[in-house]
């Protein structure tokens, strides 16, 4: 069973639709106990970082997410919230990945970074099993995670940034696999079956 965390800042419907397509049983929940019962956790996210972190605190999910030893996939803002902090609203985040979310430089590139971009797999990861290198995925974001020790894939928008992260049971993707056609479904399937 997969649980999709619903904390009022995620595109929950789209992730749920993708899991339905994959015939994966799931629950959508904001309840700590229910989320803990699942085998794997998907942490979607759209919107603004400081609002999202506030929601996690209010729902009492913040510490649980840090401590849980089960595979957890953060999507888009969900991935950024797994880092130490974000410059979006200057907020302290979950602290899994030791880095800070930065804003794209508007003088160098269009912001938001919006559309399909190719993803360069820089380290071996189960998440990208069977997915061609440089495959296109759909992005929609203004803040990014710099390339760091836990980066497993990068994309380019004025600069190279982290398209995916991995550390122990924590995974993150900056793009939206639930909106990235067949390749996106494959990545979600990989997370569910291999990670």
């Amino acid at each position: 069973m997969i649980s999709i965390i619903d904390y009022g800042a995620g595109n929950v419907a789209s992730v749920a639709n993708a899991l339905e397509t994959l015939n994966e049983p799931f629950v959508i929940s904001s309840n700590e106990v229910e989320i803990c019962r699942a085998d794997k956790i998907i942490f979607p996210g759209v919107g603004e970082a400081s609002f999202a972190i506030k929601q996690l605190h209010m729902l009492n999910l913040f510490s649980m997410m840090r401590m849980i030893g089960k595979p957890l996939l953060g999507i888009c803002l969900g991935m950024q919230l797994l880092c130490d902090s974000s410059k979006e609203g200057n907020v302290s985040c979950l602290g899994i990945f030791p880095t800070t979310g930065e804003k794209f430089d508007e003088t160098k590139t269009k912001v938001p970074h919006m559309g399909w971009n190719n993803v360069n797999q820089t380290k071996e990861s189960k998440l990208f099993n069977g997915i061609t290198n440089e495959e296109y995925f759909y992005f929609a974001h203004s803040f990014y995670v710099p390339v760091n020790n836990y980066t497993i894939a990068t994309a380019e928008n004025g600069i190279d940034f982290s398209a995916a992260l991995e550390k122990e049971n924590f995974y993150g993707v900056q793009f939206h696999p639930e909106k990235s056609g067949e390749a996106g479904l494959k990545l979600l399937e990989n997370f569910i079956t291999l990670c």
Binding site: V46, G47, E48, F51, L77, P112, M114, A140, H141, S142
Partner: peptide
């Protein structure tokens, strides 16, 4: 934009 993000 504040509530849903400018990308929306």
């Amino acid at each position: 934009a504040r509530q849903f993000g400018s990308q929306a």
